[in-house]
């Protein structure tokens, strides 16, 4: 059995090499790393509203250094048009008059009160910090988690299906039907190769973007979640590749999965947008499992792990069944 498994593993690795899977993964790793380190981290921040003061008579004497003074009413109007989130204070008439572009009711109240508070700043106060991550660490972990999820759910899923479609096209699956080997090994070897490559990808992506010291503490949990997602997506890819007639049909299914399944998960998990039905979405729980692993919050229940295992078992049984059917097909 081990000899057969070794032969199958070797063959699958060769298939992936010839399909340029590894260079593609490496390319994506480089792209993601550049994006995180030179793009995302730099723009993923937002400062509080700018406050502009027009005070020709100099009536406001105790103004915070955060306030930007402008020289004329026209300048105030211009700067507010350019920065529609900013708040303008027109103190030309003596009493400060606030002017800003409409936001939401509550945000506008805060903007008004905040701007006024800067005219009489008190001592420097800092909020109490109870977490362990800095904003940059949080941003890095968040984006790395998203990219890893995307890579495994979209790219890896495509990769395994591509390899199987190639073998389907060559007709070699039915040759394996008459070889003296356990038929499950054919599926297991593919799962093993893709699982290993996903784990290596996860390690590299995390180390390069989250940092070595942070990675050390979160890596076991991240790898566990990666393994669960990898197996589920690999089995889904195998079932699609076996059930669908050709790669063209598969790309349609793949597009639908990549866009319409992943998008609500990202929206719900990374923003305050709450969709009521999201808790019924299986990918949401898997994504949250991965995110919790990155942030070191162990909120995954036994039900979650049982659910993942059940999904893997059901998918594997499905793949087995469809694979046996494929083996008996005509050329």
């Amino acid at each position: 059995m081990w000899k057969s498994l070794y032969s199958l593993l070797k063959k699958d690795c060769r298939m992936m090499v010839s399909g340029k899977f590894f260079p593609m993964s490496l390319g994506f790793l480089v792209l993601y790393t550049l994006y995180v380190n030179f793009g995302y981290i730099k723009f993923m921040d937002a400062s509080l509203y700018n406050v502009y003061l027009y005070d020709p008579a100099g009536t406001q004497t105790t103004v915070s250094t955060l306030v930007q003074r402008v020289s004329s009413k026209e300048a105030l109007d211009a700067v507010l048009l350019d920065d529609t989130n900013g708040v303008g204070i027109d103190a030309s008439a003596g009493e400060p008059q606030l002017v800003f572009y409409e936001g939401t009711e509550k945000a506008d109240r805060h903007r008004a009160d905040y701007a006024l508070s800067l005219l009489q700043p008190s001592g420097h106060y800092s909020a109490e910090l109870i977490g362990s991550n800095t904003p940059e660490q949080k941003a890095r972990k968040e984006i790395t988690c998203e990219l890893l999820f995307f890579e495994i759910a979209a790219v890896g899923f495509l990769g395994i299906a591509a390899v199987l479609f190639k073998e389907k096209g060559m007709g070699v699956i039915r040759v394996h039907a008459i070889l003296p080997l356990q038929k499950n090994l054919f599926i297991l070897s593919k799962l093993a190769v893709f699982l290993l490559s996903d784990l290596v990808f996860a390690i590299l992506l995390t180390v390069l973007n989250v940092g070595v010291s942070d990675t050390a503490s979160i890596l076991p949990a991240v790898l566990l979640q990666t393994a669960l997602l990898s197996l589920i997506m690999a089995l889904t890819g195998l079932i699609c590749a076996l059930l669908l007639k050709d790669f063209r049909q598969f790309t349609l299914a793949y597009l639908l999965i990549a866009i319409f399944v992943a998008t609500p998960v990202f929206l719900a998990a990374n923003t305050a947008v709450k969709l009521d039905w999201i808790y019924f979405h299986p990918f949401y729980h898997i994504y949250m499992g991965l995110k919790n692993a990155y942030f070191g919050t162990s909120s995954n229940s036994l039900a979650y792990y049982l659910g993942c295992l059940a999904a893997i078992v059901v998918l594997f049984a499905g793949v087995q069944r469809v694979f046996r059917r494929e083996m008996g097909k005509e050329g």
Partner: peptide, 17 residues
């Protein structure tokens, strides 16, 4: 005010003020 420390500046500054 209490924060976790990983919020964007907008929320940190809001909490501070």
């Amino acid at each position: 005010t209490i924060l976790s420390g990983d919020e964007m500046d907008i929320f940190r500054q809001t909490a501070d003020t």
